[in-house]
């Protein structure tokens, strides 16, 4: 097992390298270091000297990938790419272009992100499973048909409508919760209700439908028929057997996304002014803060790889037949 994890860790290295190079190239194809400097220096009275000065201080006066002038190995090391990327691998994100420490910012901003994403996931899971169970329980009735139609309808609405509508009705007309904002500690709850609710509602359509198919697959299986023949009631069958067995794909599906919860939701966070990592990334892209963009992409890919690994491991827990090799 440990060996497997180690091997996967090694396999991740070239992946992260690829991600890094790609981000780097993408970013610098469109933004030259000069552009970055001008972006940071503002609009008024920017002189060429100030730009050079800025580039020098932030280490952007080197060549991008290959230093023709330097000697031997320095051809590679004396470049922006080498100098800026290597420290990422030990999770030292350094300073953003505007001078703040990225690591500290990430640590601070991941909690708001989590505090939306986690409740949304858990509540969403519960709601979706209940709706799906209900659909299976009442299958072949008008209730199931109605629910399916409702699910398709919910799926066909853009998430932006949910947010705009939610803010308008619950925040503006009913005045039940603050329209937007965030606070630390327990007082965060009142700010989280609306985004979480919207997150859950907008996810019901696809979620419930997906779980329904999972349940239906189980319901058709032989052991369920046997259980029913034994005289178990429909409810008992559903909860004791179907739900239990369907939990395996559901849980493994959840495990993949767990690490990515840290990254937050781009849209939700900027609509509700929640200071999470999602809005952090968007801001960085808009402000062309390469240091932040690179760090967030790197973090994202690490978490993604972690998610894949966790899924593999979770298979061995739920299904003893699977062995990692």
């Amino acid at each position: 097992m440990i060996q497997y994890i180690l091997r996967r860790g090694l396999y991740a290295l070239p992946l992260l390298m690829g991600v890094n190079i790609l981000t780097f190239v993408l970013f610098f194809v469109v933004n030259s270091p000069d552009d970055m400097a001008r972006m940071q220096l503002g609009h008024k009275h920017v002189t060429e000297q100030a730009v050079q000065n800025w580039k020098h201080q932030h280490g952007y006066d080197l060549p991008l990938l290959w230093n023709q002038q330097a000697e031997n190995s320095q051809k590679v090391t004396q470049t922006i790419f080498y100098q800026k990327s290597l420290s990422l691998f030990i999770f030292d994100f350094g300073l953003s272009e505007s001078g703040r420490n990225i690591g500290t910012d990430i640590k601070q901003r991941m909690w708001p992100s989590l505090s939306i994403a986690l409740p949304s996931l858990i509540v969403g899971l519960m709601v979706n499973i209940s709706v799906a169970l209900m659909m299976v329980l009442f299958r072949n009735s008008y209730l199931e048909f109605g629910s399916i139609v409702l699910c398709v309808i919910l799926m066909s609405i853009s998430s932006l409508f949910y947010i705009i509508g939610g803010q308008f009705f619950i925040g503006k007309l009913l005045k039940l919760v603050p329209i937007s904002g965030y606070d630390t500690g327990l007082s965060a709850i009142k700010f989280l209700i609306l985004p979480v609710l919207i997150g859950v509602v907008s996810g019901i359509g696809s979620g419930a439908r997906w779980y329904r198919t999972l349940f239906l697959e189980e319901v058709e299986k032989d052991y369920v028929r046997t259980a029913r023949a034994k005289g178990l009631t429909e409810t008992q069958v559903l909860f004791k057997h179907v739900l239990k067995n369907a939990m395996i794909p559901i849980l493994t599906g959840v495990v993949v996304v767990l690490p990515l919860l840290f990254m937050g939701s781009l849209i939700m966070e900027s609509f509700f002014s929640i200071p999470g990592l999602g809005s952090y990334t968007i801001e960085a892209i808009n402000r062309q803060d390469f240091a932040i963009v690179r760090s967030m992409v790197f973090l994202g890919s690490v978490l993604y790889i972690l998610g894949l690994l966790m899924t593999d491991i979770s298979y061995t827990f739920v299904d003893p037949r699977v062995r990692l090799s």
Binding site: V127, G171, V177, I179, G181, K190, L197, V200
Partner: peptide, 27 residues
């Protein structure tokens, strides 16, 4: 289901202060 969720929240909230539920400040 989301409605049940809403009810729970409302009940929780009604236990506190009724006016200015939407007050964004902790002060």
């Amino acid at each position: 289901m989301p409605i049940i969720f809403l009810i729970i929240i409302t009940v929780l909230l009604t236990a506190c202060d009724i006016s200015q539920l939407n007050n964004p400040y902790a002060e």
